[in-house]
Structure formats: structure tokens, C-alpha cells
Design a protein around this nucleic acid. Structure first.
Lengths: 246, 246
DNA sequence: CCCAATGGTAAAGTTACCGGACCAGAAGGG
DNA sequence: CCCTTCTGGTCCGGTAACTTTACCATTGGG
């Protein structure tokens, strides 16, 4: 009924926002972040929280801080974003899946929004085909999931941003596993298709706001389906096939 | 560039969620909230945070806690919700407007979602007419705002929930002021119309998810426009007519 | 050189929140 | 009646998270 609160520390929220600005291309390699004192003002927190966040970002290899000069985005930031995602999602698989959803929630709405304005006809046609394949494959997990991944890869391609494509490409394996989990949740694929359709339609309309919001709704569903499995009442209602780990 | 973090204490977030469940009708007057220990588990916090939230809700008159029995929604909760909104929004007008946006961000997406499934043809026709009036009145603030308020009132009516209608009715005066502010921001009405259209179309399609998301996008725009005014570059770009307080 | 900007470090303080313990009231069952 | 289990009520010690303040070192420009 109620959602958990207080999941992220202040510095974690700051890290997320800065990572997003790097991924979105607002900040490029070599760019300087605002000064710590300015960031503190912008985020409405003390310098301590900022320093904590900058420390984390440095550990991730996204930025480097030089005393007297400032804090700069590293040249290998896109790779480092990818690396940090891989590390995080390998930690304890069930938890890793939740992490994956969280990361996707940050990035994929923006990917959908950009794709809505950048997709060419080839991209759109590919996404229509992927959607149709998913529709035909409701009883065939392998095919469904393959088409699902294609759909998301096409979204990434449509942005025309190689960093985004590279990032999505690197997490495709993890996405595969997440999809399998959702496939085993009653109604999971159907719900996903509703959202895929909304995303596709928004992109056809070149409506980036709608695309972003449709993707958000989709990821909210994904999160719900990922958290659903451990429920005892669900296990009683529909026995799941034991699928090994996860 | 970056958004403030840590705006709400844990207990404040809990209050918001519980208030929302009262307004949405998930909880009715006389209903019992889950036990504190259960709420703590659901929200993922300690009992201390729950007790703090319950204390605030009691001060607002939304619930009453009886030792040995439980915590119950009061019979005057809808009025109390309204009362607490009035009080909050009267505090320091510029800040009050921000509060109003925040409250709207909690409730109006849900109102739009419910309206999408409940609206009858009369409601939809009324909303179409309000939209058309707004389209014709781009240069006439009074008419535009009147139609704008009608649009939102019709949404509230369409939910078929008297509490919701009562609440929106009670904040119409405040909405009027907020509208005037947005009207003075360059492009404000146009942006609003984009969202009104998306909301209307979602409701025509009976798509509550799209309606909810369209309203969210709308309120995000409203928030941005409310925060825009103090910018000096804006004042230079387009001198605003002094409109008294606010 | 001085000055102003930057990040770096440290320490004292505050507070929101946690967790535990216990109490009293209420209700139900034996 | 007593006992058990549930509820909210109260208190307290502790601590993690964050704030604030102060100072230092580095860098670059005038």
C-alpha cells in the first residue's frame, strides 16, 4: 500500500543527478563542474554532502578534482559509467536487479525522450517490428525477450548518441535476466506491451514528453514486477517454475 | 541545472502518502490505519518516524489515535485536508504558491487518472469547450484563466468523488492567482495548452495512465513557470506588469 | 607580490532517526 | 476471573548523517 521512504542518502541523490548530466551530454569529458560551494547552493545542502558525492564520483572514475582548479569530468567517463553499472549490478543478484531498475529509471526516460525527436523511419519501423514480434510471442519467452531487447536497443540507437548506445549495449545481458523474471510474473509481458505501445506511439508522434512519461510508467511496472516475486500469496496463487538462482 | 535534494523529512513523506490515501478514498472516515509497527515495516522506517507522522496527522485533524485500539481516519478528514491546504498556502504567498504546486503534484495526476475512467460525455464535452476557449483567448488573461479553471473543475467533477470536487473547489481562488503568474511568463499558456490537450486526449481514450502522466508533465511545467519569475534575464527580456503582492 | 578562486582537511555541534524497553488500555479466549 | 496478544504511549541511549565553521594549500590572474 505504501512505498518505502528514505531510500537514498543526500549524497547518493547528488551522485545520481551528476551522473545523469554526464550521460545526457550536458557535461562532456574535460568539462568543469560548478565549484563545490556553488553545487552546495544549487542542491540546497552543505559542502560536506557535496564532497561526499564528489568522492564517490572520483572513486567511480567519472570526475577528478584538482585543488585550486576545480572538478573535471574525466575523458573516460562514459566507460566509467558503464563500469560502475556493471559492478553494482553484479552485487548479489536479487539486489542487483533492483539496482538495475533504479539506474534504468534514471536514464531510460531520457533515452525515450531523445529518441522521440531523433528517430528516423528505419528506427521506428524496427521498433514496430519488435513490438509485433512481442505480440506474437506471448507464449515464447526466448523470442519475446529477444524482441524486447531489440526494442530497447533501437531506442538507444535512435538517440544518435554513441555513449547511450554503448551503455545500453553493455547492460543487455543483465536486461535479459530481468526480462526472464518479469516473464514469470503473471501478466508481466502484457503490462510491458501496454507501455511499449505507448512509447512507440509517442515516438511516432515525435512527442518526447509523452515518450519520457511512457517509459517512466513502464519502468514503474518493471519495478513492481521485480518486487513481486517474493510474495507468499503470489506463490500460492500461481506456482512459479523454479528457474535456478535469482 | 540541479534540483534540490533532501527537501522532505522522512515523516513528511509518510504524511504525504497517508494524506493521499485519504483523499483518494483508499481510506474512508472511520477506517483504521495499519498498526504503527506495520506502517514502520511498510515504509521501511522505525516507529519513531511513524509516530512523528501520526502526530502531524493528528494535529491536522485527519486521524485520531486511541491507545489499545488503533489509529482511525476522522469523520471530518476531507474538510481537514482542505483546511491544512488553506493554511499552508497562505503562508508567505511566493512560498505558498510553491506549496500549492507540490500539493497539486500529489493529487492532480491521480485526479486525471480517475477522470479518465469515470468521465461521461458531458464532462468531456465541457473540457473540449474549455480547451477551445483557452485556444481563442491567448491574449485575454481573464477568459483564458476562467476556462483553465473550468477545465480543472470538470476534471474533478468527472471523478465522481465529492471529496475531490470539494477540495478543488476550495483551492480555485488560489489557482486563479497561480494562473495569472503563469500567464505572465513567456510561453506559459502555450505550454499549458500542450498539456491540456494531452490530458484531454488521454481522457477521451479512457487512458488513465496517460492522463496521469500528462498531468504530471503539466504540473512540472507549472512548477518551472512559477520558479521562473525571479530570473533577471527574464525581467530584461519581457517586462512584467506589476501585479501587486506575490 | 597580493588577491580571489579552487579543493582539502578537521572538528565541534546538531538533529533526525533508530532501536530497545517498558507501560497502559483494549479485546478476545479459556 | 486470568492470560495473551494486540494496540498506542513514553522514554532513553545511541548514532549516522549532515551542518557549520575554520583553516590550509594550490592555482591563476593582475
Amino acid at each position: 500500500m505504501y512505498n518505502a521512504v528514505g531510500k537514498f542518502r543526500l549524497y547518493e541523490q547528488i551522485v545520481q543527478q551528476i551522473e545523469e548530466s554526464i550521460l545526457k551530454g550536458t557535461l562532456h569529458p574535460g568539462d568543469q563542474l560548478p565549484a563545490e560551494r556553488d553545487l552546495a547552493s544549487q542542491f540546497g545542502v552543505s559542502r560536506t554532502a557535496i564532497r561526499e558525492a564528489v568522492k564517490v564520483l572520483q572513486e567511480k572514475g567519472l570526475v577528478e578534482a584538482r585543488a585550486g582548479k576545480g572538478t573535471f569530468v574525466t575523458s573516460g567517463s562514459a566507460d566509467a559509467v558503464r563500469q560502475s553499472i556493471n559492478l553494482a549490478s553484479r552485487i548479489s543478484q536479487p539486489h542487483g536487479l533492483t539496482h538495475l531498475v533504479e539506474i534504468r529509471e534514471i536514464f531510460e526516460p531520457e533515452i525515450a525522450a531523445i529518441a522521440a525527436t531523433q528517430a528516423d523511419e528505419q528506427h521506428v519501423a524496427g521498433m514496430r517490428e519488435a513490438y509485433a514480434t512481442m505480440e506474437r510471442s506471448r507464449q515464447d519467452p526466448e523470442s519475446f525477450i529477444e524482441a524486447d531487447l531489440d526494442f530497447h536497443l533501437l531506442l538507444a540507437e535512435a538517440t544518435g548518441n554513441p555513449i547511450i548506445l554503448s551503455l545500453i549495449d553493455s547492460i543487455v545481458g543483465l536486461l535479459r535476466e530481468q526480462r526472464m523474471r518479469i516473464f514469470q510474473v503473471s501478466g508481466g509481458p502484457e503490462r510491458g506491451q501496454v507501455h511499449h505501445k505507448a512509447i512507440l506511439e509517442a515516438i511516432e508522434r515525435r512527442d518526447s514528453d509523452a515518450a519520457r512519461e511512457a517509459m517512466r510508467a513502464h519502468l514503474k511496472q518493471v519495478r513492481g514486477d521485480c518486487l513481486r516475486e517474493p510474495e507468499p500469496s503470489r506463490a500460492a496463487a500461481k506456482p512459479l517454475t523454479p528457474s535456478g538462482a535469482v
